[in-house]
Design a protein around this nucleic acid. Structure first.
Length: 886
RNA sequence: GCGGACGUGGUGGAAUCGGUAGACACACAGGACUUAAAAUCCUGAGAGGGUAACCUCGUGCGGGUUCAAGUCCCGCCGUCCGCACCA
């Protein structure tokens, strides 16, 4: 017995080189007879280094890709870099390093880290979105979208830092102040580029139903995000005595016209034209509107802020009762972006309206009676009732149900006239807004447009692409480096030839990630998306990434792929014919959980990395001290591994200590993949022990069986047979677990088989194993190694070789389980009395109900539990359970 | 604030369709091997009661549906994710 320890560091490198030399992970260009399978993990932002937290996503994708390859699929498993973005520009400002240099250095490090994990990636297709070879195509896509009217300019709000004179991202606004300057942030209007995603609202919503391999929760979140609603727009006449000049009506959108008799006030956004007009000669109101603008642009801030309003003094006439005048407020919770930027409020039916009404002592009239409420006693206290019911206090609607009332009011208001036009109009509304893609930053894809004083906005002619980022930009101060570059924006107008200026906005990085998966199909093509390759490879068969992308990235990608397809860049469909090609980019989606880790803080409140902390335990409580200073360290909460909290375990450190296989095994073990997994040293030790244990086991069995490795014996003893059954059941189970991405279950099944092999091996060594045991052992470890191969591929190769094979395991087909060994003729099912388990019966698998019932009733514990009483009813679910009801 | 999810032993979790709750692992305890330790191997264990056979309770909390609920429904509590310029 050799029994040497498996040297992961050395052997992993060895097998990675073998795979690379054999070039086995390179995908074919197109069709090769096999069924295709495109496996993709959301590509990383090159932030610096890869930590164990990142590695989980890639490991999962890799297990799936390797498994599918073994199952005979033509697998495409590429990798690239989502390489534009703010951190590079921040690094440039802080460390005086060019964003491109910083990014490419990070990529170089991270590429090596990913390679050290032994991923089955086709590296020949790698690209970074910040390279002109990629973004030039994105510029072409932009031009085509603009041509098709899908990219356009309009005014919208940004967070403005008045000290740094720069636009801030939402995450750069902390408690209403700029993160660098500390200045109070204000909203400012800028003309910016937008993609017309709302044109696709209905398609994006309706097609969610076809995404059967997406998690329901993601589909639901997207549906709510799009937020299609059927409602009514209503024009309210303004009281001429109180309205500002030129304003005679106020249009609101509502999904609940049935509650119109519960209306108690109107509210408009601070930027609503009526608010602006009213503020002109009302300084207090103007100040209030200014205050609303100071909240910045983030929805979280706007909606969690205390509800505040200001009475404009304007009064609006109720559309169903011209003598009923309602006050018009400016309210900080009404958003200009949604509907018409104005609402009528029914406090009894909407919590936000109710809170507001209570605060400003406005009337609260209940108009809907819940079906289970007592009409005499029903009243609204501090909880609004938004559900359905019977109309009350609503004149001609009284007694109707909510839906009928909706129809009746709607019909009436559609027929009613104000200034000769209908008061009400049925309208489908969406919460989804067009996608603003302009960023006033350097490190992004330049928008290929030119501003000419005479010709207006002129697209850069396709022949003049790419519009390259200048290398000699300066990053010493805030603001847009493209805008202040001395010469870059100077260009001649392509139309009239006069001096003009380039667009200095760059694109949102979400644009980069909205089509990269299509580029992977043919990453060197001269057109953005090669229709032949795309038609073959798309859609992505299995997409894997974090749940945090459930809405934006995935929705943008679904939109962008449709939009570019409709401009002729998709999978070869013809937008004008019935065949529009593939519409959805991702056929199956899996959202994986994060790797979490404890956090540590010094007495001064600084985050400390785990490497600088020593943990001590006296069995009951745990203490942490700072290794260098010996100072006490407070142990904080368990949070997602992130650079900012420093609770990361570097992948290089991990691999040099334990090897890539241990890392892979660890992140797959225990936690279900869609849930978070907690990183602990003891958990890692456990994973590492397993890797070593498998190696020992294979080594021992190889030694034990190499002398007598004869053909399959004619008969097997009980022990050999039960090992064979365990092995083939495991094979069946692991296959379907990987297929269903239930990696933690696959891991448990492999542990179980290893345990069975271990005990059989022990008996064999003791000479008590009986007929065929050695052969069964060899079969078991051989299949074990093949099953482990997708998860811990290096060790599997090593074991494969140790078992005498001179082929690469990565090229072997997935083994087939023997059906006869999987199905038992005898099964054990539980027997309950009144739902409580009182015994179990072992019976032929195909026994009929009567036989099962008879056997169950004859069981000694059942007879005892029945205690002479006769069964009232016996429920027999074949192959599942017997329940005797007395 | 709005939208979405999750909650099972000391710990991570399993239970694929409403059908034996706690697979598998970690930690722990006892034993074997060893001069000793490490490593390895074996055994034990949800809680409570009982010499034992066995009994009772038990999947965040409170209700409900069902022969049967971790699983379905209603309400509550807690944690996490997203909210449009972080990626």
């Amino acid at each position: 017995m050799s029994n040497e320890r498996y040297n992961a560091a050395e052997r992993e490198k060895h097998w990675q080189t073998k795979w690379e030399d054999a070039d086995i992970f390179r995908a074919t260009e197109t069709e090769d007879g096999r069924e295709k399978c495109y496996v993709l993990e959301m590509f990383p932002y090159p932030s610096g280094r890869i930590h164990v937290g990142h590695s989980r996503n890639y490991t999962m994708g890799d297990v799936f890709a390797r498994y599918k390859r073994a199952k005979g699929f033509n697998v495409l498993h590429p990798m690239g870099w989502d390489a534009f973005g703010m951190p590079a520009e921040n690094a440039a400002m802080e460390r005086k390093v060019h964003p491109g240099k910083w990014t490419h250095e990070n990529i170089a490090v991270m590429r090596e880290q990913l390679k050290a994990m032994g991923l089955s990636i086709d590296w020949s297709r790698e690209f970074a979105t910040c390279d002109v070879e990629y973004y030039q195509h994105q510029q072409k896509l932009f031009l085509d979208l603009a041509e098709a009217g899908l990219a356009y300019r309009k005014s919208s709000k940004v967070n403005w830092d008045p000290v740094d004179n720069t636009v801030l991202a939402n995450e750069q606004v902390i408690d209403g102040r700029g993160w660098r300057s500390g200045a109070l942030v204000e909203q400012r209007e800028l003309t910016q580029w937008f993609f017309n995603i709302t044109k696709y609202s209905d398609e994006l919503l309706d097609d969610l139903a076809t995404l059967e391999k997406w998690p329901d929760k993601v589909r639901l979140m997207q549906a709510n995000w799009i937020g299609r609603s059927e409602g009514l727009s209503i024009r309210w006449a303004l009281d001429a005595k109180t309205a500002p000049a030129g304003h005679s009506e106020l249009e609101v959108y509502t999904t609940r016209p049935d509650t119109l008799f519960g209306a108690s006030f109107m509210a408009v956004a601070a930027d609503h034209p009526l608010a602006i007009a009213a503020a002109e000669n009302n300084a207090e109101l103007a100040a209030f509107c200014e205050e609303c603008r100071r909240l910045g642009t983030s929805a979280t801030d706007l909606e969690t802020a205390e509800k505040q309003g200001f009475d404009t003094g304007i009064r609006a006439a109720h559309p169903l009762d011209p003598n009923w005048l309602l006050p018009v407020y400016v309210a900080n919770f009404v958003l200009m972006d949604y509907g018409t930027g104005a609402i009528f409020a029914c406090p009894s039916g909407d919590q936000r309206d109710l809170d507001f009404a209570r605060k400003y002592s406005l009337p609260v009239v209940p108009v809907i009676l819940p079906s289970d409420a007592d009409p005499a006693r029903f009243e609204i206290d501090d909880e609004a009732y938004a559900g359905d019911g019977t109309m009350i206090n609503s004149k001609f609607l009284d007694g109707l149900d909510t839906k009928t009332a909706f129809e009746k009011v709607t019909d009436k208001l559609e027929a009613a006239k104000l200034d000769g036009k209908p008061v009400g109009k049925r309208q489908t509304n969406y919460r989804l807004r067009d996608w603003g893609i302009s960023r006033q930053r350097y490190w992004g894809c330049p928008i290929p447009m030119i501003h000419c004083a005479d010709c207006g906005v002129v697209p850069v002619p396709a022949k003049d692409l790419p519009v390259k980022l200048p290398d000699d930009a300066t990053f010493d101060k805030p603001g847009n480096p493209l805008d202040r570059h001395p010469t870059w924006k100077d260009v001649d107008c392509p139309k009239c030839g006069k001096a003009a200026r380039r667009e200095t906005d760059t694109m949102d990085t979400f644009v980069d990630s909205s089509w990269y998966y299509a580029r992977f199909a043919a990453p060197s093509e001269t057109t953005p998306v090669d229709p032949i390759a795309a038609k073959y490879w798309l859609p992505v068969d299995q997409y894997i990434g974090g749940i945090e992308h459930a809405i934006l990235h995935l929705l943008y990608s679904r939109f962008f792929f449709r939009a570019i397809s409709d401009c002729g860049h998709g999978t070869g469909g013809d937008p004008n014919s019935g065949n529009r090609g593939a519409r959805e980019p991702f056929d199956a989606l899996f959202t994986q959980g994060m790797v979490t880790h404890e956090t540590y803080k010094s007495a001064k409140g600084q985050w400390l990395p785990p490497t600088e902390v020593k943990l001590e335990s006296d069995g009951k409580s745990r203490k942490a001290i700072h290794i260098e200073t010996g100072a006490p360290v407070s142990i904080g909460g368990i949070e997602k591994m992130s650079k900012s909290k420093k609770n990361v375990v570097d992948l290089d450190d991990f691999i040099s200590a334990y090897g890539a296989d241990t890392a892979r095994w660890f992140v797959l073990s225990d936690s279900p993949p869609e849930r978070d997994v907690l990183y602990t040293d003891v958990g890692v030790d456990g994973a590492h022990r397993f890797v070593q244990r498998v190696w020992r086991q294979v080594d021992e069995i190889a030694v034990l069986t190499e002398k007598n490795s004869t053909g399959q014996p004619g008969s097997f003893g009980d022990l050999a047979l039960s090992l064979r059954k365990a092995t083939h059941k495991c094979l069946d189970g692991v296959g379907s677990s990987i297929e269903g991405l239930r990696f933690n279950v696959a891991v448990a099944q492999l542990y179980e088989l290893t345990n069975t092999i271990g005990s059989t091996l022990q008996k064999s060594k003791d000479g008590k194993a009986g007929d065929g045991a050695d052969w069964a052992l060899r079969e078991a470890v051989t299949l074990l190694v093949q099953m482990m191969a997708p998860m811990i591929p290096h060790l599997a190769e090593e074991c494969w070789a140790r078992l005498g094979n001179n082929t690469l395991l990565a090229n072997q087909p997935w083994p087939e389980a023997e059906r006869a060994l999987i199905v038992d003729d005898q099964i054990t099912i539980a027997v309950q009395v009144n739902g409580k388990r009182r015994g179990e019966v072992t019976i032929a698998r195909d026994a009929d109900k009567d036989a099962v019932e008879a056997a169950a009733l004859a069981l000694e514990p059942i007879v005892r539990a029945l205690d002479g009483k006769s069964a009232r009813k016996v429920i027999v679910v074949p192959q599942r359970i017997v329940n005797i009801v007395v």
